[in-house]
């Protein structure tokens, strides 16, 4: 167990480093961009050139990546924080500390001042959605998979397929049109601000519905497939022909085995939710991490993109670790 954790942990760290380099390479594709984004749209070419020189932006990509990583780890002061540059950039935490993600050119604030509150908002939204997705998809999947080919299975399967066929923005628009425009029972946007006339809780309903409906269909199909596969296994026949009642066979013999594969899939939904919120938050103007990432990407706010991706990857990677551990606990064969 400890060995497994160490091995997977090392692999995951490697993933983080490699992926952050990938993002770095993508966003800093042309070095001049960095200086231009920092100075804003009205900067003169000479200014851009001078800043590029001062920040050593002509260095090879790998050198710049190492420098960025050093700033993040607190081994080096953020070069933008240098008052000599005259950029009026100041981080109250200091120029050199562990976890220094740099300075957002879009919001004109240190990244650490922006990212965490947005992340908390998103965690609430994704958490509620996850809490809906898991029971809903399990229920749909198990009921459909218990008697494949039955009328109930047909209805539930077509329902799940239809749910997965509705992209979040399309679903968002449809739900908003129905509940906000025609029925006027729910708010069409969820800025989480007071004074919109809608209670805070009601602002969550539509975004959660969009996330949960789309994703539950997908997970339910996975659960159904796994359930059908397990029910066809010879050991289920063994259990039935022992004289056990069918209900007991399903509860004791089928469910645990049928949950091994979907367990991984379900945990991967956390990873998916991080991406899923980008669209949902945009549809409902929800002040979260996803919308921030989109704004940063569209603006070219490199420090913020880099920080947001790292956080997203970290969550994804930890989820993977969790699913490995869970698999290890669920499947005795994996334990050896």
């Amino acid at each position: 167990m400890v060995g497994l954790l160490l091995r997977r942990g090392a692999a995951l760290l490697l993933t983080l480093v490699a992926a952050s380099f990938l993002v770095f390479a993508l966003t800093q594709f042309s070095p001049a961009n960095v200086a231009r984004e920092t100075l804003g749209a009205y900067a003169l070419p000479e200014q851009v050139h001078i800043l590029s020189e001062k920040l050593h932006l002509q260095d090879p990509l790998v050198v710049r990546y190492v420098r960025w990583a050093e700033v993040l780890l607190g081994l080096r002061a953020d070069p933008l924080d240098d008052p000599a540059l005259g950029l009026h950039i100041h981080d109250p935490r200091g120029a050199r500390y562990f976890g220094n993600f740099g300075y957002s050119t879009l919001f004109h604030e240190p990244v650490n001042d922006i990212i965490w509150s947005r992340l908390a908002n998103t965690a609430v939204l994704a958490g509620i959605a996850f809490a809906v997705i898991v029971p809903l998809s399990m229920l749909l999947g198990i009921l459909a998979g218990m008697r494949p080919g039955s009328r109930l299975d047909r209805v539930l399967s077509i329902l799940s397929i239809t749910m997965t066929s509705m992209p979040e923005y399309a679903l968002g628009v449809i739900l908003a049109a129905i509940f906000a425009v025609w029925l006027k029972v729910l708010p069409g946007t969820s800025p989480l601000a007071k004074g919109t006339g809608w209670p805070l809780a009601s602002q969550f309903l539509l975004p959660v519905a969009v996330l949960a409906l789309y994703d539950s269909g997908y997970v339910a199909r996975m659960v159904r497939a796994s359930m059908i596969e397990v029910l066809g296994k010879p050991y289920i026949r063994t259990a039935l022909l022992k004289g056990l009642p069918r209900r007991r066979v399903i509860l004791r013999h089928a469910l645990r085995n049928a949950m091994i594969t979907p367990f991984t899939v379900i945990l991967l939904q956390i990873n998916w939710l991080i991406g899923g919120v980008v669209v949902t938050e945009t549809v409902f103007a929800y002040p979260g991490f996803g919308r921030m990432l989109l704004q940063a990407s569209l603006f070219g706010d490199i420090a913020l993109i880099e920080a947001a991706t790292l956080v997203a990857l970290f969550v994804a990677v930890v989820t993977q670790l969790l699913s490995d551990v869970g698999y290890w606990l669920l499947d005795p064969e994996a334990r050896g």
Binding site: R256, N257, I260
Partner: peptide, 11 residues
Amino acid sequence: QEPASALNPTM
């Protein structure tokens, strides 16, 4: 016939 598959692997 196949004892390996006739037994439940997780029990």
